[in-house]
């Protein structure tokens, strides 16, 4: 007798989505529109807004890309808390009404889409790249830097940042001081400065040591609360302050710049292992 597998249909729950709509050419100010849609277990906010756009209202605009928490495009204010739409399951919110708004502290482009220009400008201003005394180090592709696991751990968590802007939108200081660099840029200033391969700490400390830099942070910690990647920007900002204060008290940093290691010439590859493709860069 054939075994018939009964697949039980997932229970559907109807959830009301209150979504902020705004079309700058048409609307004077943002307004809310409600959509009632069926939600099943496992559906994320991103699934829900995609559902609304495909089947209910195709004028709804939102930004998304990877739908797995890597690209940082789908940040939204979900029931008052900045979250990634793709990483938030609707039923886990435990409410029947979900309010979606664009991220605060950013200018709105349309509906749920915000303008990240200023945010990226601040990010660029802190020189978010490895600075070497000898630029040719960076183009020498045959060699690698020597860095111990301990040295790697000094900045590892800060390098998980995906620039989704959630910390920036949660920050009360960014809300009141529009020139404040923001937790994201300050964290990246620390991330590159703490990297032993980098020699740009003094340059970056001069950039963040201004009235709208790290001293404006009063440690609300909202950035750390909302980070979807487990980064602790509040910590990074305090560490930046510590670096500056140490220098003001005359303490000399005793960090050695990571050296370039020559490629292991003596090592012989085992037979029957195909050669890697030539470098494409």
């Amino acid at each position: 007798m054939a075994v018939t597998k009964v697949v039980e249909k997932e229970k559907e729950v109807t959830i009301t989505f209150r979504i902020q709509r705004y079309m700058p050419e048409k609307d004077e100010k943002p307004y809310f529109k409600e959509y009632k849609i069926p939600i099943t277990r496992g559906m994320t906010i991103l699934d829900a807004i995609a559902y609304i756009q495909e089947r209910v209202d195709n004028t709804l605009s939102f930004r998304a890309s990877c739908r797995m928490g890597i690209c940082g495009s789908c940040g939204l204010l979900v029931n008052g808390i900045p979250r990634l739409a793709c990483q938030t399951q609707v039923l886990q919110l435990n409410t029947t009404v979900v309010e979606l708004r664009p991220l605060p502290n950013f200018p709105i482009v349309k509906d749920l889409i915000v303008d990240f220009t200023g945010f990226f400008e601040k990010h660029r201003s802190i020189k978010p790249y490895i600075i070497r005394p000898d630029v040719s180090d960076l183009s020498d592709l045959d060699k690698e830097y020597i860095q111990s696991p301990e040295e790697h751990l000094m900045y590892l968590q800060f390098s998980y940042c995906i620039k989704c802007g959630l910390c920036y939108s949660a920050c009360p200081t960014t809300y009141t001081d529009e020139l404040f660099l923001g937790p994201q840029a300050l964290t990246q200033a620390y991330r590159y400065s703490a990297d032993t391969r980098d020699n740009g700490i003094e340059e970056r400390l001069l950039i963040v040591d201004n009235p709208h830099g790290c001293w404006r942070c009063h440690f609300a910690g909202a950035c750390t609360m909302v980070c979807p990647r487990g980064v602790d920007p509040a910590l990074a900002i305090q560490l930046l302050k510590k670096e500056i204060a140490a220098r003001r008290f005359g303490a000399k940093p005793r960090r050695e710049l990571a050296k370039l290691a020559p490629p292991p010439k003596e090592a012989k590859p085992r037979p029957n292992i195909p050669k890697p493709p030539p470098p494409s860069v």
């Binding site: 200081t173 001081d177 709208h212 404006r216």
Partner: peptide, 13 residues
Amino acid sequence: RVLLIEWLGGRWE
């Protein structure tokens, strides 16, 4: 000063 910069915004610094 810290309070005022936060309250009025950085442009008033």
